[in-house]
Design a protein around this nucleic acid. Structure first.
Lengths: 193, 193, 193, 193
DNA sequence: GATGAATGAGCTTTCATTCAT
DNA sequence: GATGAATGAAAGCTCATTCAT
């Protein structure tokens, strides 16, 4: 088994366990059992419990950023880019519910991660949105009086709050496509000159 | 001393301590010390540690709902209502940073509260937004194709994400009024026919 | 039960357990069981495991110093003082075998206690010897060329090594009085002009 | 590489590590790293952690015994022999501070070594002293009423306690020669008829 | 009602030892 | 023989909760 396999196995197990029980209620032995390794093995790959969460976060957000950026490269219209971003965000979190729950619930939860820990990956992710807005303003499509620093947070916040529907609800009242459509419409009209 | 005084003292202390340390890192003895009561006294007013958080949440959200509803009664225009809601939300959380942090960070964090615990107070709060949207649609001011169930979450999510700026950042790059203005503009244009 | 009772009960239990198993092999739960308290109770009286050992040491040596000084006050002849000191030292450690074992074995064992921890109580104890030697030199009874700083260590080391006989051996080949006599004779002749 | 090389490398490494951290705080991996072998390799040469310490002890004391006996053969006067023994003891431990620390601190520390483990090498070492005393008594130089079994322990204890000065103190207040001189004078006068 | 000393279950982390390669 | 990744038992310490006063 390759080294990276163990690391990855533990990460995947941690996602499941953190999603099920929450970071603080999750025991290392839960993760170990889920990953089918010994408790001690986890400490060969991670420094401590917090490190698992941060590491997991950076790895996964990193992958997501790569994916979205790749997708967006194929489109030039900022309005359509916004839709693609929204759709991709919702789809992804729907597909990886456990991961979604961990990212949403656990990561923002503690001073440990949002205050002391400078969350650069997260910033990189939402800066994709501000880049789109900026582009739209440069091309005279979007309203130049809109502050991209506010709009990016608004859009991410909206997506994030919506995605909770699929994470928490067994039978969400809206489809993902419908939601992505509605959200991008809403913001598009709001942004467009 | 009236019974409610002790209850309230403990709740206020819990807000401070949860904000400072997070729910899981907070100790009952921290709260007791902050409230200037004995550890055991807390258990005369609350069943357990989780109960403090839920109780705190319901009480505080209850007060906020009362306040906003009162404010909104004085205004009839749905567009202006949206601005008032946004401004009030941001102002409040800025004024009560500790409470803001607890509501944002701790409450959504655990399955314990968002899954098992049916969060009716929270639903009541964001339904204020959908009521405004509904009113605007009834009065043919807002686009009838917008789903209020989506828009309410989008608006709350945007506000929530924005408010993190004042909670976490020492020197936020925007003023509260500016932000409320930008957000309500954005959504207003998005919503308006 | 008075507070000091619990503290003392734990200290006494720790002496027994440390003597039986050694500091590192002793578990907190062993001490707790021996003291008939809960594990956690120990941490109401001591900061950590090391603290129990140091605290125990300072308390017990403190008591011993008081006792010996009291005894020595009644005697003026430095030669006889030396005998009294030796006899008392050996008797005491014979009577309190567990304590003797802990003081001998555990305390000198670790950098933690002899390097980082400035062992002032111990120094105070062996300085009783140098004071006697000094007195003898002042009174022209003892050889002035003898360095009290060396002799005090020699005498303490001799006593300490001897006392191991009663700590470790079931049937020591010498009696305490005989040993005290031999040792004080040996050193007296060595010291006397 | 000869087998004994690895064994010796590990022993030397263990001396360093035990001296630095103490037996219980030393990790097998520390010793392995210091010896530049793999952790598992240590178990090809030693049964377990305790075995390293005991083995180390027997080897090193064995060497010391050989050296002293050789030195003493060249001298016939028991008084001078005593001085030679003292000087050699102190010099050796000063030269091999790490070894000194391990012998002093770690070996006497635990029941594991002084009770269960019959320390024949150590006995052999201090019996060199009683042999000298015996010789002196046979030759009518030393006081026949002195019990060699007590005197040997007294002398060893004195040397041992003194040698702590060079192990623990950066700037010991006495030189080794001075100390050996003082000690052998003290005991010589004490022993001589 | 109020207290806070006492409890003891529970958890993270360490590390001697093993064994497949 | 040599390796070092993997193991899993073990233990120090914490802290929510209880209950005698």
């Amino acid at each position: 088994m390759r080294i990276s396999d163990k690391h990855s196995k533990i990460t995947q197990a941690a996602v499941k366990v953190f999603a099920r029980k929450g970071f603080f209620n999750a025991r290392i032995s839960d993760i170990a059992k889920e990953a089918k390794v010994a408790d001690g093995t986890i400490y060969l790959y991670f420094n401590n419990k917090y490190d698992i969460l941060i590491s997991l976060f950076e790895d996964e957000i990193g992958k997501i950023i790569l994916q979205v950026k790749l997708l967006l490269e194929e489109e030039s219209d900022p309005g359509k880019k916004l839709y693609i971003f929204a759709l991709h965000h919702l789809k992804l979190l729907d597909k990886k519910k456990d991961l979604a729950e961990v990212l949403q619930m656990e990561l923002r939860q503690s001073n440990k991660f949002m205050k002391e820990y400078r969350n650069t990956k997260f910033i990189e992710y939402i800066d994709i949105i501000s880049a789109i807005i900026h582009q739209g303003q440069e091309e005279n499509i979007f309203d130049p009086t809109v502050a991209p620093g506010i709009a990016k947070r608004a859009i991410f916040g909206a997506l994030d709050e919506m995605s909770r529907l699929w994470v928490l609800d067994e039978n969400p009242p809206y489809t993902i496509e419908e939601t992505a459509q509605q959200l991008s419409n809403l913001f598009l009209k709001g942004l467009t000159l």
